[in-house]
Amino acid sequence: MPEALRFLTRTSGRTQLDWTDWLSYVYLVFGLFLMFGPVLWIVMSSFKTQSGLSDFPPTFLPYGQKTVHVTGHEARLPLYRVKKPDGSTRELAELRRIGLTATMIDPAKPDEEMPVNIKDREKTSELRVATENYTELFGKLSFGRYLWNSVFITVVATLITLLFNSMAAFALSKYRFKGQKTVFLLIIATLMIPPTIILVPNFLVISNLGLLNSLWGVIWPAVATPTGVFLLRQYMLTIPDELLDAARMDHASEWQIYWRIVLPLTAPALAVLAIFSVMWRWNDFLWPLIVLSRSELFTLQLALNAFQGELQTEWNYLLAMTVITIIPVTLVFAFLQKHITTGIASSGVK
């Protein structure tokens, strides 16, 4: 075997694909299927009607049962292909069904009702994209409310994060003062304390501050991120101090130096932090779950969790809602993928 391997690798020229390359591409295509497949499946499923979702085995494309409008009946009736005893098939619409027998009518002759054993019929389906799963969301389930809560938390928390963290990073990178090192170490130390281990006392703090069942109760604990301070400080260290001194000569205030000079020059690092912050806050689950118990304050994540836990889950709406939740993250991914991946690779921060 090693002989064979050596032979294979030796024959491959620089431009020619060798066997490891082929194996790599097979692996990558398999990975593509595995990583995107589940997401694609949920997107396809979200366009199926309730009845299309209950089809088993499931189809890839959204098929729904054909319905027909019959004079004398207000609602559209589901269509079936019925096998008659003489071997012929007819398309009939179902009026009602009791046990194993369905009462069906011919759409062309609405007066003539006939009993059909449900074994003798099958659904007629057609390709139907159920966009109503999406459009009805806003009326039903107060989806707009959840969307607003999520957007509010994400946007406000990110803005405050950028402001507070850049202020701290500015102090830690552009000044020399007593206790500076201690403060920096203290902030870095908070990295070692994950929110999961201080849930109970944080709950007390939040309720003492009157922030229980308030969106601000989710925002405030999240806005001081050690990761953000660290990221921005490292970046600000590269800004030459002469710029600041020159501005001081011109009687600029410290605050002006911060936002007119340092902040604009930190824009690339701020952008990375903004992307991270948006993802963190949009995806947050455990802390909002504890702070927000009133359903009108639910974020999208909490609403999704609540609906999937219900006894009669309406999967067609749940799937549509899931897809909408994925959209912003996917957009961030599509346009900023390079920033995120290089950001992570160089800082080890997620």
């Binding site: 990558l28 990975g31 593509l32 990583m35 995107f36 589940p38 997401v39 499946w41 949920i42 499923s45 993802m279 949009w282 995806n283 689950f285 994540q301 999704l304 969790n305 999937q308 999967w315 749940l318 799937l319 899931t322 939740t325 994925i326 993250v329 996917t330 961030v332 991914f333 993928q337 995120i340 991946t341 997620k350």
Partner: peptide, 22 residues
């Protein structure tokens, strides 16, 4: 390809769970 393997990292835990539950 790097993006392909990274994409699920961005999804929220709730979404991940729902995708697989489905």
């Amino acid at each position: 390809w790097r993006g392909v393997f990274f994409y699920p990292v961005l999804l929220s835990p709730v979404v991940v769970a729902l995708i697989w539950k489905w």
